[in-house]
């Protein structure tokens, strides 16, 4: 009878026995004894303790680490999006000005050229889509089971007002592609903003499914990339 090699015994110990090794161990007392010696030693070695770390250890590591993390160095174009709140305010002003002067003056006469209005719109749109993408990604990638949505609800509410303004601006300027995407987003944000803080696994799965069925995350990513390119061109 051919006995098991040391490698066979080791693989068996680690739960990956070669073919017929388990059977052989049943039949062969020599191999069984050798396996027992190996397993005893390795089991003992496994008992080596490490100094315990409390449940908050991960948070402690983060607290020590964060001050040392290098600051983000975004692309010059991305840096402009940090001015998003200003851009949104300007967009709101431009939107209002557009409404007031719609029948009387051209956009240029309202104080902003068409190009400026477009640039502001794209900047605000890009920032909005990036933040929407983070929220959607969290929804889609969340584990199954009941989920706590309190944080996401608050962010959805923040995004909702901005989303409405952008959608109306897009629709008024005849930008149907952006308007349609923003309409889809608005429905998801509305549901999320009005959902209970804790969502059952069934409701969470439905919400995830809706986002996935519409390909919303993909559309947002593609559109973000497009608006960024258009912004660069302008």
């Amino acid at each position: 009878m051919k006995h098991l090699t040391e490698q066979d015994l080791l693989d068996t110990y680690y739960g990956e026995p070669p073919e017929a090794a388990t059977e052989h161990l049943h039949e062969c007392p020599e191999c069984r004894a050798e396996f027992a010696r190996l397993a005893e030693l390795l089991d003992e070695v496994r008992n080596l303790a490490t100094p315990p770390r409390g449940p908050g250890y991960g948070r402690e590591v983060w607290a020590r680490l964060q001050p040392h993390l290098p600051a983000e160095k975004p692309h010059w174009w991305t840096r402009r999006w940090l001015l998003a709140p200003i851009a949104v305010a300007l967009l709101a002003a431009a939107f209002l000005a557009g409404l007031l002067t719609q029948q009387k003056t051209s956009p240029t006469q309202a104080g902003l050229s068409q190009k400026d209005r477009q640039r502001i719109f794209l900047a605000a749109m890009n920032d909005h889509l990036e933040r929407s993408e983070i929220l959607l990604a969290q929804l889609v990638h969340t584990d199954s089971g009941e989920i706590d949505l309190s944080g996401e609800r608050a962010r959805a509410r923040d995004l909702l007002d901005e989303n409405r303004l952008l959608r109306e601006t897009a629709a008024r300027s005849g930008d149907q592609a952006h308007a349609a995407l923003l309409e889809d987003l608005e429905r998801v944000f509305l549901d999320l903003a009005n959902s209970p803080a804790r969502l059952s696994s069934k409701d969470a799965a439905e919400l995830r499914q809706r986002v996935e069925d519409q390909g919303l995350l993909f559309k947002v990513r593609v559109t973000t990339s497009d608006t960024r390119s258009q912004g660069k061109t302008l």
């Binding site: 990604a137 969290q138 929804l139 990638h141 969340t142 989920i147 944080g151």
Partner: peptide, 12 residues
């Protein structure tokens, strides 16, 4: 909400 490793890495 629990992020998977892949999603968290993507965000990072």
């Amino acid at each position: 909400m629990e992020w998977t490793d892949a999603a968290a890495a993507e965000e990072a």
